[in-house]
Amino acid sequence: MVSFLLKRLLQSIIVMLTVALIAFAMFQFVGDPINNMVGQDTTQVEREALKEKLGLNDPFLVQFGRFAWNAAQGDFGISYKYKTPVSDLIFERMPATLELAFVSAVLALVLGIPLGVYTALKRNGWLSKFIMTTSLIGVSLPTFLTGILLILFFGVILRWLPTFGRGDVVEIGTWATGFLTISGLKSLILPSFTLALFQLTLIMRLVRAEMLEVLRTDFVKFAKARGLPDRSVHFKHALKNTLVPVITITGLQLGSLIAFAIITESVFQWPGMGLLFIQAVSDVDIPIMAAYLVLIAFFFVLINMIVDILYYAVDPRLRSNDG
């Protein structure tokens, strides 16, 4: 167990270093950082001095090492556009994105898994077929269009729900939460549903496919041949075996929610990291892009670690070596 985790940790570090390298390469090859930091009237001498001061004349490895070291401490330099530290910008907006992603993840899981199980067990029922067809529409509806339609219907026509922003937030320490006010919660409904819809259909279809796979295995047939009731065969034996592959992909999917939020945030003008990022892309604000990339990679690595631990909990074949 310990050696397994250590191995995973090592892999995670390699992943983070690779992503950091990409982020660093963006600094190196895209635009001139000095040009982005100073005005038109700065002299060549001043520029050289600034270059020296920032260490841009150092060897590649030294520069990368410094970049990685700073990044590990959350320091990604100064935004070209806002002229403030990137970390401040990102941390200010992180709660909005994380709250949105969290609610969407819960929605996707709570609805996706039972629907997947249901459609697998009753796969020839009309309701299952209806759900499956509807889910295909869910997959075919681009996230931004879902958002637009929801805005049109609930915001413009019915005027029930707010269509942009987070509503009122409450500051708890440095964390601005929208969970504690009515308008904050109301504002969450449309964006979180928009963000969840795509993942929900994916998770549902995945659970269904895996469940069908497991239902065909010999041990399910043998369990039926022993006279075990359907309830036990389906939930005690089949569902638990379905979870092993589902955990991995679900983990990845939920990880991608944070990045996927870019679109939702853009449609709903949700003041999160995604919106910051999309603006950075338009403005070629490399520090923000780099920081966002590294942050997403970090969440990915974190979720992967959790998935691995969950694996251990579910699958005894990983736990023992005396097989």
Partner: peptide
């Protein structure tokens, strides 16, 4: 090899 549920004792 495949007749028993791998996740249960």
């Amino acid at each position: 090899l495949t007749s028993l549920d791998p996740l249960q004792t």
